[in-house]
Amino acid sequence: MSSHDGLFNGALAVGAGLAGYLVLALVMSSAAEPKNVRAPAEEPVNLDFGPNERRQDEVLLHKAGFAYECIECHAWQTRNPAPRRFIGEHLLMNLEHGAVNTCFTCHHPTEYSSLTLPSGEIIPYNDHVRLCAGCHGPIYKDWRNGAHGRREGYWDRSAGPVSRTDCIICHDPHQPAFKPIAPLPPPGVARGEAFAPPEEPSTVLGQVLKYVPPPPPPDRAPVRLEETEP
């Protein structure tokens, strides 16, 4: 299996370094699962409607509480372009992106810390929209014109700025389908619910007389709008 060979060779090449890494990983891995870079799921939603903050200039592999740059491993590791199930690293990586089945469609084959366009041009991670645009032209056009993706700020550009969310804030580039999310609770049934024909008498006095004091409001737990961006 070529992948094992690659791993094996690499390990021989920097045996000492890897050993140190393994020890660290063993010590820490029980404490912390490998964290995905984009997992601030517990963070409450920012109801101040502020701009989405997400660092894309630096893409790191988070592991055992440490953050590694891609080249820390890929500088010495033999490149293996074959689509496969990973066993050495990126164990949770599972590419489900339509017909796109090789990593190097998007990642640069030698500069792991960059993306690449079909033309071979190297682009930084925070320029990923250009990459997506290459294959998703119509959606990109909508996105540019404000009909796809989320906006915040001012519809009147002369009054203030507007922020646009980048593709990967909603779509994990590796499994781009929008993830299902939990809905907030239904609104409950109120008197005067518009689906039922109104049966209240139509005069003001009639209504006053028919008025039933409301039951004390249930202790409704404050509903937090959870941030769901991946």
């Binding site: 409607f49 915040e152 002369s158």
Partner: peptide, 9 residues
């Protein structure tokens, strides 16, 4: 000049 709240959220 701002967007409605429902749009931003």
């Amino acid at each position: 000049g701002r967007y409605p709240a429902c749009l931003e959220v």
